[in-house]
Amino acid sequence: MAGAKKPVRILRNLNAKVAALPMITTALVIFVGCTIWTIVHSFTNSRLLPKLEFVGFDQYERLWSTRRWLVSIENLAYFGIGSLVFSLVIGFLLAALLDQKIRFENTVRTIILYPFALSFIVTGLVWQWILNPEFGIQHIVRGFGFENFVFDPLYNPDIVIFGVLIAGLWQGTGFIMVIMLSGLRGIDGEIWKASRIDGIPKWKTYLFVVIPMMRPTFVTALVLISAGIIKVYDLVVAQTNGGPGIASEVPAKYVYDSMFRSQNLGQGFAASTMMLLSVLVVLIPWAYLEFGGRKDGK
């Protein structure tokens, strides 16, 4: 009886299952399979070609004693913290500004958001040009008579990552602003009325009432920014190509270079596994809060 039923069950909804095959394949083969493959191979001494000769944590030890990787991590930390703080703050402030029933709201939003439509390569090259000390901002300010003015972030190893950060923020803040704006518009208008009747100044209402109410929006923005930070690659390649020296290297670039330039696959696998780990550090608490919390609430 049961044996006779089984094939029917698989056949039921067959079209849908066939249609979902690309999704199932992608989910299993690419996102699960390939990830596991890379993690497994990060414990091997693969160089030009992947091979299953396990060497334990050797690759990781080597990784964490490579200066270039350490610089990459340090840069990622600066870039990441800078991106998070400035994107959230600027994105929120711009959204709050646009929420003041201003005229030309659409125009302003269009102008602030357009960089987001551009490629990181384009962004990187433009800012490379603007920050060029010979022709760009430094040159112009010196032209005003400040002969000793120095602003050459892309040529100064100590601050080069902030030069990249400026470009990254220019491209990304518009997006965060749009998310924040939709969060602000989602707040019940009667809350604002109530606070006006209570005589609370606007900034206080934002600070003590509206921002706490926008927690989900902030969390979403945080997750999106974090996912973007870890991936940062094109921008650095275009703007500085990791230079001067190795001063603006980032992990994603380290991975690419190990895999495709220096024939050091094992290093690339180990480095990319570290990247995955850092994403999980953000993602797991978030997923737990969002989805685990929802179950508790029920």
Binding site: N15, A16, A20, M23, A27, V223, I230, Y256, T273
Partner: peptide, 29 residues
């Protein structure tokens, strides 16, 4: 519209896949 057993599981994996850094997957591909 045509949910089947397991469809949501695959979908969840897919969505979480969006957060996996590309660098982890590029070489196997």
């Amino acid at each position: 519209n045509w949910k089947f057993k397991g469809s949501e599981v695959f979908f969840t994996i897919l969505i979480f896949g969006a957060f996996v850094p590309y660098q982890v997957i590029i070489y196997p591909i």
